[in-house]
């Protein structure tokens, strides 16, 4: 972890920021979360992997001399002079629910999709989701593709989605765009991933072809 003294010795540039209303002076190389800790404040909620993949540390960010407010991940947001950061709480979970096993075959996926996510075809193309996504995903396009039944293509857009729910919060039509993306990815695997190398091995195992011997030689 960041050690105060070594930072000072390195003579790193200090910047002034406001995080959750607290005025903080900290080295510019720190993330918003690290800056809070550096200044002696406690922070455990909204912290997770600290590597930008768990989607926990949702923040609002406003930069000096700019009225635009952006949504980002706190662990990935390096502090800058005059920056303001606010941690966001998590929204209520979406009301959409489904089980993959309840979709009887791949012929049914489109019909089921519109039953599970009826709002998806009502996207008003406001781009709120795209603007909120810290991973730069073309969320709106993903929703449109899924609504047209192009699930594999839609899912490909969400490869880097960390399920931070920022697009869910932003969507005025309550589409839960990230869950639409994840649905698209999951049905693709569930119905279409059928690797012959895996299936052959499973068959072999079933026929008892691969017993293991644990008395093997040991040097």
């Amino acid at each position: 972890m960041t050690d105060k003294h070594s930072m000072r010795e390195m003579g790193e540039k200090l910047v002034n920021v406001k995080i959750d209303g607290k005025a903080i002076t900290a080295p510019a190389s720190l993330s918003a979360i690290q800056a809070l800790w550096y200044a002696g404040y406690s922070r455990i909620k909204s912290v997770g992997c600290l590597e930008g993949v768990c989607g926990s540390c949702r923040v609002l960010v406003r930069r000096a001399g700019n009225s635009e407010v952006r949504t980002q991940l706190g662990c990935q947001t390096l502090i800058e002079e005059g920056m303001q950061v606010m941690f966001l709480v998590f929204p209520r979970p979406t009301h959409h629910t489904y089980k993959l096993e309840e979709i009887s075959s791949s012929w049914e996926v489109q019909t089921k999709f519109h039953k599970i996510f009826p709002e998806a075809s009502r996207c008003r193309e406001c781009r709120g989701c795209n603007a909120s996504c810290p991973k730069g995903i073309d969320v709106m396009k993903g929703v449109a593709l899924a609504a047209r039944g192009r699930f594999r293509e839609a899912g490909e857009l969400f490869v880097e989605c960390v399920m931070c729910d920022l697009c869910l919060t932003a969507c005025p039509e309550l589409i839960a765009p990230n869950h639409v993306g994840l649905f698209s990815r999951r049905v693709t695997a569930y119905f279409h991933t059928r690797p012959s190398n895996l299936i052959r091995r499973l068959e072999g195992l079933q026929r008892g072809k691969f017993e293991v011997n644990i008395e093997g030689e040991k040097p």
Binding site: G155, V187, A189, Y190, T193, S196, L198
Partner: peptide, 15 residues
């Protein structure tokens, strides 16, 4: 895969 997890596949769909 049944939980809906994808893997990298080759051009023939093998893992």
């Amino acid at each position: 895969i049944q939980q809906g997890m994808q893997f990298d596949l080759d051009e023939f769909g093998d893992l």
